[in-house]
Design a protein around this nucleic acid. Sequence first.
DNA 1: CGAGACATGTAAGGGGTTACATGATTTA
DNA 2: TAAATCATGTAACCCCTTACATGTCTCG
Lengths: 196, 196
Amino acid sequence: MSEDGIRLSPTSYVVLGLIHLRGPSTPYELESAVRKSVEYFWTFPHSQLYREPDRLTASGHLTVDQEPGGRRRKVFALTPRGRSALDTWLTRPVEDVFEMRDEAVLQLFFSDQLTATALVDLARHEIALYQRRLDEYERIAARELPRHGQDRRMAPLRLGIKLAEAFREFWEEIAADPPPPTPVPDPVDGPPGRLC
Amino acid sequence: MSEDGIRLSPTSYVVLGLIHLRGPSTPYELESAVRKSVEYFWTFPHSQLYREPDRLTASGHLTVDQEPGGRRRKVFALTPRGRSALDTWLTRPVEDVFEMRDEAVLQLFFSDQLTATALVDLARHEIALYQRRLDEYERIAARELPRHGQDRRMAPLRLGIKLAEAFREFWEEIAADPPPPTPVPDPVDGPPGRLC
DNA sequence: CGAGACATGTAAGGGGTTACATGATTTA
DNA sequence: TAAATCATGTAACCCCTTACATGTCTCG
């Protein structure tokens, strides 16, 4: 897709974007920037922040400058090509919408042989998780509000809160009124059910 | 984690779960079952539905029976071990909550140099995507309602609708009232902003 | 100056996506 | 019976995760 070689994944753009915001950075600095920024909606382990800049350097999107002694840190900087890749991406409409890909939801889908109480247990567990998640979000929001107010950097956080609330409400409904399992299909009459 | 060898991913449980629901199945049948069931919240390409059963067979969770002639289809069936893995998974609390991992949200986060109108374009695009998604969900819901009513197999769909609505509303707010870019930090006073 | 924390990487393996490739059935 | 479609798989690559491994600073 890109003229030469590598494919740029969202991870690539996180790296390019953060270096653009911060200026030349070491992987370690990127890691801490991630922790302070996108981590709440896009996590990754630190090893990626060492590997991905190398890839982007090989493809000409970054340059690297390594300290000769001491910690031999690698400082990565944007090249014009990297900058332009970032700009292009920013205005390219994304075709994929979200996917739930939520393991607990998968369990629910396949939960036919679970008793109602077991299901309620799962739901309560999820409620607790989302409540905790919401608490984290609120803490971040409170911390960032004075600096970021309602600017663009805050918007994803508002979305995160919206979504976590939706999940929590969903599981609360399940816990309050656990839906019955799907009746076992009678092989005699009618075609097999659609949602199986 | 499992006693011998392989790690079971959510994909593995989709395969185990569907075979449990349908009985012995070929990958092709699994594919069509996926299309009719979990696909709307957990997609995968058909190649996985050929590879994953092989893995699960190697680990003793499935057995395979291949037709000698014709299409030489492989029919996979649950073993007791596969069945028990499924049961265990069903009651194991999931520790991971959802992650947005939404590329458009990432764009928004890094959209500082975008004009308000360009941002509105992105938002409108997203609104259209989610509207389409919602239409699909409503179509599925209408189709399945008579058979599945309010049972467990329908619950994920309700969640999907809730979430897609949350996304759509979010982008509608962005489009109606595009937030300002984050002010460029003044390097003179104060530490660098948290959300960068 | 020793211990712990901070900082910086590498290696291996796996799961998933993309792409390729071909056999079998149906239909015109 | 040829074309189109349905059906069935394989191969390669790549990103990501997990795990390992080590060096450097800082503070008591």
